[in-house]
Structures are given as C-alpha cells and as structure tokens.
Design a binder for these strands. Structure first.
Lengths: 228, 228
DNA sequence: CCCACTAAATGAATGTCATTCATTTAGGAT
DNA sequence: ATCCTAAATGAATGACATTCATTTAGTGGG
C-alpha cells in the first residue's frame, strides 16, 4: 500500500507558522486539548492515521512537545477512552425500571465503542483509578443495580458479564457483511451454510443488532430474576 | 597460535550457520512451519516479542524470506488463529446434551483465546473463507444447534452472541486483579466500592470465571428455551 | 532584585519495525 | 541448452514512538 495522500505542501497556506524555540508565554498544550484533538483526528483519519506526529501536527506543535503532558501514545488512548465513556447513557438508572435502564446503557455503550474498537484492549485491562469518568459510569450502574434490589455480591459479576458481551459485540458491528460466506467450502459445511442462508432470508435488520439483542435480552431476563 | 581462518563455530552462540545466497536445494519454509514457529515464539516471548525478524530468526532464515510464503504479519496471525481454533473443544456437540455441549465449547474457546487476546481483533473481522479450521468449528457448532432443534434462522445469531461474549470474556481473564480498586476516589463512589468489597469477600473463585459463568448460564438457559 | 529551578517548547537523533527490491541460485518445463 | 519461476539472501526504505540536548519563560526563596 502506498503512503496515504497528504495535503499538498503549499508554502503560502502553510498551516504551521513556526513557533520559536523555548517555552512560550502561554502554554499551548494540556491534557484536555490533547484529548479533544486526538478524538477529532481519530474521527477524521481513523486509528491508522492516528500517530503522535499527526496529532502534533493538528495541534501545531512538535511531536516531542506532547511528551511534556502524556507519557506515551497509550496514555493518549486512555484519555480518549475515558472521555468517550462520558457519552455512554446511564441516565435511565436514575429514573426508569431496571431492565430498561440496562437496555439503554448497554446499547449506547456498544454503539460508542463499536466506532472505537482499538480502544477495547486498552479498556479491558485499565485500572479504574486511571479513568475517572469510567469510574463514574460504574458508580451509576452499580447504584442502579443496588437500588433495584440486586444482591450486592453479584453486582460486579453481572456488570462484568454484560460489559464483556458489550465489548465483544462492538467488534461484531465492524465485521464485513459477508464474513460468513463460506464460498467454495460450502459443500463441506452444510449445516453452517444452511443456517447462514436462513438468517439472510430473515431480515432487513442488521445481523449484529439481532445478535446483540438476543444476548442482551437473555442476560437481562436471567439477571432480573436474581433481584431480591 | 596460528590465526584461524574463520571464527570458531560455536553452535550455542552461532545458531545461524549462514545459508548461502540463492534458492536452496530443498525449500526451508512453508506455511505450516511458519505457523508452528510463530505459535512457539508467541508462547515464549508473547505478542510483544513476536516480530517478523524474531520469527525469521527462529526459522534460521532472513526476514524477507518469510514474504515468499505469507504476504504480511497479519497473514501470520491469521494462520496462528486458525490453528488455535482447532484446539477448541467441539466434541460434545456430537454426543452429550445441547447445554453441556455449549458449556464445554464456550469454556474451552474462552480459555484458548484468553492467552491470545491480540488475535481477537483479527478474528472478529476475518471472513471464514480465510480460516478453514474456524469454518469447521462453526459447522460443528451449527450442526449441534440444528440437531438440538434450534430454529434455523436463529442459529447464527445465537452463535454470534455467544462468541461475542466469549471474546469479551477472554479479555477479562487478562485483567489485573486490582482493576476495580477505586483508590482515593472511593468516597465518591460508594455503591461501586461497596459492591467490589462484597465481591471480594465472596470468593476464592476467580472473578473472571464467576462472571463468565453467570453470563454463559444466562444465555444457555434462555437460548435453550428457543428449541422446538 | 536576582538567581536558581522548573515547566514547556523545538529540533535533531535513535532504534525498532514491517516491508520491498535487486540479486542469486535451483530445478523443472519447452 | 535455455527459459521461467520459486525461494533464498542482503541491503535499502520509510513509518513510527520515544528520548535528549537546548532554549526560553515564568516563579519562589534569599
């Protein structure tokens, strides 16, 4: 693959009026600004185009300057993931019934991260201490479960199970439509091929949504029965 | 002491008796050998230590030689993932009851890939055509569902839902034990902190296993009721 | 008021990778 | 014999993330 096309270098419209060496009068960077720029860059160029150099360019800064505010690229990803978590809808845990709250939380959680699957490996092993907004989400969800009469000692397990399903399902959203096309091997996989065909006949609904709904409702139904 | 014309050949420190330039009489590499070496290297050095150069070294070959047999590093990962899939236990779909078969399949699937989470992003978007052993697994599982009286048009959705849960749970296995320690933020997250404490009191069982069991049993119970 | 310290920028390396290319050689097909 | 293709080597290439020396701007203690 050839290198991705870059904006033509037009010295007249050069977006980089060189800052002179040394500490500037007012700080140019901070973590919030870096986070916002990173999110925007990811939106425009995807995770492939998301490099420290590219990030620095959008901030009109030398790449090395970033390291005064974050210690690594992974650090930036953590900032982005925590910011994204604030877009997950936990509002229903304050008002509606438990099952409806879980539903809207889970769907919005999946939708947010299905566009950011490269963050999932980061989230999955990230201590909550390093992600305050994520911690806030857990608090809201835990409170909702607790208030709904869920036994204390199962709350975390239930949330983890739901979250695992949500993360896995987020990947599923990004899968190509014909991922299950068995092609020339179809004759040796009759049961699978038939099942895929039946599914294709079924629906105009997106397969990823159908599967997510199926799994989510199973968990909601079963977990709901645990409440005291 | 007469000067030796060549450096002494020490097989311990000179694991690379240079092959001379040009095509060797017998081919040194093939996809199976590359796959086996990759799996071994990953086992020894993890995914961080898994580089094309390191892989070439274990095969006693120049890195560029690999590209006569695979087209990219991702290609190698696909070979590895497909090979690993053959370790997933689908045997019970031939014999035991449906729910037991799903259980042993799901647990073994999770266990295999919890040691190989960097493959999950690869699997999730990989067309089955490119992974024959994976396709064989789907066939065995589909046949089991079909034979158990599962409605054709829901088989794929159910498998996808289970698989999503399995992948997400595989990540969960790798999470650090204290991932939920809210540290200094504990006072602002009372519900969450209490739930974490209760969970910690509960058990000697690994939290990841408890959560996996909870979610899996929910799906098995609910999906089982769909059978005709 | 000065001076040392620290913070925040630049610009120039560094080192690690995956990947490509030119070249060499072997063996089978024409 | 000659040509073609496959399978090696070894030497680039080009991205990257990250580090380091250097420069400059405020700040706090004497």
């Amino acid at each position: 693959m050839p290198a991705p096309t870059r904006a033509p270098a037009d010295p007249l419209h050069d977006a980089k009026p060189r800052r002179r060496v040394g500490r500037p009068a007012a700080a140019v960077l901070d973590q919030d600004g870096i986070t916002a720029a990173a999110l925007q860059l990811i939106g425009k160029s995807g995770y492939d185009g998301f490099t420290m150099a590219a990030l620095a360019r959008t901030l009109n800064v030398a790449p090395s300057a970033l390291y005064n505010h974050v210690s690594s690229k992974r650090d930036v990803l953590v900032l982005v993931q925590d910011h994204l978590t604030s877009f997950v809808d936990v509002s229903a845990f304050g008002s509606g019934p438990w099952d409806q709250a879980v539903r809207s939380w889970a769907w919005s959680y999946r939708d947010v991260f299905s566009k950011h699957t490269p963050l999932i490996p980061v989230i999955a092993v990230l201590p909550v201490t390093d992600a305050p907004k994520t911690l806030a989400m857990y608090e809201a969800v835990s409170a909702g479960f607790s208030h709904a009469g869920f036994p204390q000692e199962r709350i975390i397990s239930a949330i983890v199970a739901l979250e695992s399903f949500i993360f896995g399902s987020a990947y599923d959203v990004t899968a190509p439509a014909d991922i299950f096309d068995s092609g020339s091997m179809a004759h040796s996989t009759p049961n699978f091929t038939a099942a895929v065909k039946q599914q294709d006949l079924e629906g105009y609904e997106k397969p990823a949504d159908v599967a997510f709904n199926l799994g989510l409702e199973a968990m909601i139904a079963r977990f709901g029965a645990l409440r005291g």
